[in-house]
Structure formats: structure tokens, C-alpha cells
Design a binder for these strands. Structure first.
Length: 462
RNA sequence: GUCCCCAUCGUCUAGAGGCCUAGGACACCUCCCUUUCACGGAGGCGACCCGGGUUCGAAUCCCGGUGGGGACGCCA
């Protein structure tokens, strides 16, 4: 059997981290099995769906490199087909019109809640053999409901959670078409998963409760039942549920914040899934290893520190050339324009191992291209009056020295010897004068990149 | 309330009855490297939710608690 998976977001917001992981797992499953990954936009909620959200989802997937083999399909463009299927169901008796009004239903729900019962439709308009239906009201346009079986249980072997059984008595007759005739989510999903030949439905576990209803409809339609895999949710760093109000951000925010897609992908892969002790791996490797058996069924908390660690890894691994354009852009955002010297790729190479994000990297090298911002605490500590003569001597030496890290290092050593100091006694003030702060890579390397003229100018300024 | 799901270090996880005095990773701490900060290297701290059972033997199986989460829309 050819594997066909899908990612089916509703375009009511950006692609967040949970959606991204769901997409990633679906994508990887299809890749692993040489199958097809399908993108389907579930935009039947006309009031909340927006073209901007569609674009945001597409952008997010593109940034992550989650390419789809088919789609994007839009449910709004498949209305005719859904309506056809509804007509068929009406004819064969697996669906029926319901004239209960919204207020009637609301009252019913409140009453059931008050009686500590599970709120559900009371079956008022459900046709049964020998049952006399109420007179059809003239002022109400009916909805269409699915005639769910009342006996027995729905069972499926969830690929993540194992066997799940839900009694039909727990289910009620759900609405499959609204009063205006438009089909609802649970119904569209069924038709689409069926007609798109989806073999594995991989989705968030907030859909577990929809699954038995969908299986029943699939059965009513005589469709093959796909396998289901319900992924647990991702919690925020504080263990709280992610929501728009609380911590849920677009994957594009990670781009903005200086994360590499490789790092985000690698991080997400290990959130709820594992392959022994493997922590760092490419997407190519992930697709080979990925399976549904090693997915954890409990919710996972998002941990920025680990993401940072992975991001640092991928930044270190990236070539300076590949980061060049990105870093230039990020410097521009800091109002720093890159000049020809110091050579940006060389600077990136020297600094990339110390940055957790590309933003940090850009910020850390800004002083090569603009006047350093003096850290007053560091200045007070290191730029002492006593050290001035030694620095002056060094400045003289530097005018003539061969401008290589090693020669510069020797020059500093000469001064150290002459004044009988420890190396840091000279290196630290130098560092602060040149960079404004007390931490940097090896000072001779920094000086070499900065250039003789600029180094001398910055020393003279103090 | 009803139904469903979940439960190993602070966090992500390994673990399919004996390989478990519970392994790895992030974070944290110490030391080494060192020119400061990082990187890197070596150590350390640190967990099987509770109670019963099954078994020669349970983190692993069963039952019951407790705790957390989800669903219960003419939203998706």
C-alpha cells in the first residue's frame, strides 16, 4: 500500500510550533515510506479563515523546507463535492434534517450540564422506524445531522496511543451541514481523507474525540478506514498550554529571532520522538529513522535552552559564506552597515562558535563596523592610569609589526616582559579599548581582523 | 459533570519482566584547556506519582487512587 499522509491546518492564524511538528511528522512518515505528503487547507470557517493566514502557513512550511507532493487543496473549493455526498447520505438514510433551533439546543445543553450529564443532542428529529416526527416548523432552516449508530463501540488501534475504544452511546448525531447548507469540519475531513486516499492520519490528540465520529461516517460511506496517529501536544516552557495569549508564536518568529531552520527541525524532531540516544541529526537521517513506534504519548514541554544549544551547533557548522547574507541583513537591522574591511566572512568564522542565535552573532560583531559602545564597568576596571605607559609602548610597536595574529601576539608579549606584567594585564585593557567589552575571542585575532589603522585609532582615543 | 488520554532527573527522553546500584541530551556545579568570554575535554548533582496485586523477580503487567491534559459548538 502506498503511504499517503496529510497536514490539514485551518487558516485562522500562523503556523505555530505544534502545527509545525505535526506537519514535520506527517512529512517524515511519507518520506520514510516513499509515499506522498498532502497539504490541505481547512478553510470552511469562512468567518475566521483569512488569505493572510494561508500565506503565513505556506511561508512557515517553506522556511522549514516541508515540501508537499500534492496540494494545497482548499476545502472551500470542494463544496460541490461535499454537498453531493450529503445528498447521497440523505437518500440512503445515514443523515437527516434537524429543525431544532440554536436556542432550543442551547437550552438543552444547559439543562444537561445542570443535571451533570454530558451535553449532547437529544435525537428529537432523528428518524426511527415507527417514530412520529414533530411537525416541521416553517420559520427554521434545518441543519443536517449524521445518524450515528447508537449501539456498539468504535475501536481503533491508534499508532501512538494504542487501542482506543469509545462507546457509540457516548456519541450524538453531529451536524454535518449548517443551516446555510455549508458542510462542517468533521464531515469535510471525512470526505477528504477518504477521497484523497489518506492512509495514515497523523494529527494532534485534540482530535481523538473526533475520531470515532469520523470512523462512523467513513463506515456509512463505505470508505476504507485510515490508520490514526494522535500526537500529544507541546506545552510552553512553563508547562502551560500554548495559546495565542500565552506563548504561542509563529515559526517565522524563530527566523526573526535568529534560529536556523535546521535547528528548529532537529529540536522538534526530538520533542516527543526519539531514536535511542541520538540528539543531533539531519532531516535526511530523520526521515530514515522516523517511525510512529517511538513517539511518546505524553505532552512535551518546550525548552528554549536546548533549542539554543542545537542552534549554536548548526551555526558553528554553517560556513561563513552561507551566513553572510543573513548576517548582513541582521546587522542592517541594527543600523550597522558592513564595510569591506574587516572582512565579514572572516569575522563570522571567528565569532560563530560563541553565538546561540544569528541575532547574537550579528550583535557581537557590530563593533567591527561601528564605534564600540563602552561598558563602563569594564572600562573602570581595566582602563587604569597605571597601564597607560604600557599601552602607549604597545601602540608604538604595533605601527611597525607584521599584521598577523602571531606577530601581534609577540608584540604584546614584548610589552608584557618590558613592564613585568602578566599577559591579561595588557590584553584586557586592549580588549576593552577595541571592543568596548571585557569578552571577545583571542585579542590578537580580533586585532588582526580589525586592521592596524582602526586598532591604532581606537587605542589613541583612550 | 460525563467520556477519553497521560504520568522516569528541573526539561527532552532511553527503557517492551531479570542487561537498571535506571542510560543519554539540555540546563546547573566543579576541574582541565586558556589571554577574558565562549568552544572543547573530564567529572558531579539529579528521576521511575502513591497504594495494592501478579511474579522467583516490576520503571516495565493488572487494579485502585492522586495529579495533569483533552473533548463535549450550526469552530477547526
Amino acid at each position: 500500500m502506498i503511504v499517503r499522509t496529510r497536514f490539514a491546518p485551518s487558516p485562522t492564524g500562523f503556523l505555530h510550533i505544534g502545527g509545525a511538528r505535526t506537519a514535520l511528522f506527517s512529512w517524515a512518515y511519507a518520506k520514510k515510506h516513499g509515499g506522498a505528503f498532502i497539504l490541505r487547507i481547512e478553510d470552511t470557517d469562512v468567518a475566521r479563515s483569512t488569505p493572510e493566514a494561508v500565506q503565513a502557513i505556506l511561508d512557515g512550511m517553506q522556511w522549514l523546507g516541508l515540501d508537499y507532493d500534492e496540494g494545497p487543496f482548499y476545502q472551500m473549493q470542494r463544496m460541490d463535492r461535499y454537498k453531493q455526498v450529503i445528498q447521497t447520505m440523505l437518500q440512503q438514510g445515514s443523515a437527516y434534517y434537524c429543525y431544532s433551533s440554536k436556542t432550543e439546543l442551547d437550552t438543552l445543553r444547559e439543562q444537561q450540564m445542570a443535571d451533570k450529564q454530558k451535553p449532547r443532542y437529544d435525537g428529537k428529529w432523528r428518524p426511527e422506524a415507527g417514530k412520529v416526527l414533530p411537525a416541521i416548523p416553517t420559520d427554521i432552516s434545518p441543519v443536517i445531522r449524521f445518524k450515528n449508530p447508537q449501539d456498539g463501540v468504535v475501536v481503533w488501534d491508534d499508532l501512538v496511543k494504542g487501542r482506543i475504544e469509545i462507546a457509540n452511546s457516548e456519541l450524538d448525531d453531529l451536524i454535518i451541514a449548517r443551516a446555510d447548507g455549508t458542510p462542517t469540519y468533521n464531515f469535510c475531513v471525512v470526505v477528504d481523507d477518504w477521497e484523497m486516499g489518506i492512509t495514515q492520519v497523523i494529527r494532534g490528540d485534540d482530535h481523538v474525540n473526533n475520531t470515532p465520529r469520523q470512523i462512523n461516517m467513513l463506515k456509512a460511506l463505505g470508505a476504507k478506514i485510515p490508520q490514526y496517529a494522535h500526537l500529544s501536544m507541546i506545552l510552553g516552557g512553563d508547562g502551560q498550554k500554548l495559546s495565542k495569549r500565552h506563548g504561542a508564536v509563529s515559526v517565522m518568529q524563530y527566523d526573526e529571532d535568529g534560529y536556523l531552520p535546521e535547528a528548529v527541525l532537529n529540536y522538534l524532531s526530538r520533542l516527543g520522538w526519539s531514536h535511542g540516544d541520538e540528539e543531533v541529526f539531519s532531516m535526511h537521517q530523520f526521515c530514515e529513522w522516523f517511525d510512529l513506534d517511538h513517539i511518546t504519548s505524553s505532552a512535551a514541554q518546550f525548552n528554549t535552552e536546548k533549542l539554543n544549544w542545537l542552534n549554536n551547533h548548526y551555526i558553528k557548522q554553517a560556513s561563513a559564506e552561507s551566513l553572510l547574507g543573513d548576517i548582513t541583513k541582521r546587522l542592517a537591522k541594527l543600523n550597522v552597515s558592513v564595510s569591506e574591511t574587516p572582512n565579514l566572512p572572516a569575522v563570522i568564522d571567528l565569532y560563530k562558535e560563541r553565538a546561540n542565535t544569528l541575532n547574537e552573532l550579528a550583535a557581537s560583531i557590530a563593533y567591527f563596523y561601528q564605534k564600540p559602545i563602552m561598558d563602563l564597568v569594564a572600562a573602570e576596571k581595566h582602563l587604569t592610569v597605571e597601564i597607560k605607559p604600557a599601552i602607549a609602548t604597545l601602540a608604538d610597536l604595533l605601527k611597525a609589526v607584521d599584521w598577523q595574529a602571531e606577530a601581534i601576539h609577540h608584540a604584546i608579549n614584548e610589552v608584557v616582559t618590558q613592564y613585568q606584567l602578566k599577559f591579561p594585564k595588557v590584553a584586557m585593557p586592549l580588549r576593552v579599548m577595541l571592543t568596548g567589552i571585557a569578552q571577545s575571542p583571542s585579542i590578537d585575532q580580533v586585532m588582526k581582523l580589525m586592521g592596524r589603522e582602526e586598532v591604532l585609532a581606537r587605542i589613541t582615543n583612550h
